[in-house]
Structure formats: C-alpha cells, structure tokens
C-alpha cells in the first residue's frame, strides 16, 4: 500500500489516518428490484488491478473520499471527495 495518500483536502497524509470502507458502488434506489439490491449488497467485480474504494479520512478532514487504487501494486492513482464526485455526476 502506498504510504502517503493524496487527500484532496489535507494534502499527502499517512495511510494510517484513513479507514477503508470497501468498493465504491452506486447505491440502488430504495424501491429498486430485489435483484438490484442483491447485486449491490453481495456481488463484487473484485478486479485484479484498478479499483475504486470509499475511504474515510478518520484522523484528518473526516470526509468520505473515493480512492482509485491498484489491487496488485497497491499504487494510488487518484483520490477525490466522494460527495463532490456524486454531485458532479448528478449534474450530468
């Protein structure tokens, strides 16, 4: 794992400050079919390579982030604010 994580709010910070939640998936609507919920809750791409995860900067800005990471080399390609990204995607 990369030792320093480029937090968009705090700059490069040691990874011990962060808590990893898991795959950055888009949540289905509350009234979506059970099959969509099953897919969201249980099934995973589990890629060998590029992967997006939700991380929480627990000991820093306390914002939820989306970290793009490689699951083989552990290199971090990008890191952005999760809420900011959700808003910009909603505008599209």
């Amino acid at each position: 794992m990369a030792s320093l994580v480029p937090c968009p709010n705090c700059g490069r910070r040691p990874k011990e400050e962060f808590t990893i939640k898991g795959a950055a998936l888009s949540r289905p609507e509350a009234d979506a079919d059970s099959i969509d919920w099953f897919d969201y809750v249980y099934l995973r791409e589990n890629p060998r390579g590029a992967y997006e995860e939700y991380w929480h900067h627990t000991s820093g800005c306390r914002r939820w982030l989306v970290v793009a990471r490689d699951t083989v080399t552990h290199e971090i390609a990008a890191c952005c604010d999760a809420a900011g990204r959700a808003r910009s995607e909603a505008r599209k």
Binding site: N46, T71, H74
Partner: peptide, 14 residues
Amino acid sequence: IDGYNSYAQRGNLA
C-alpha cells in the same frame, strides 16, 4: 486480514 482488497501476496507494516 489487513482489511483492504488485494492480490499482492504481501501485507502492510501497520
């Protein structure tokens, strides 16, 4: 487990 998805057969010092 270290707690993050990984295919590298090595872990973290933390």
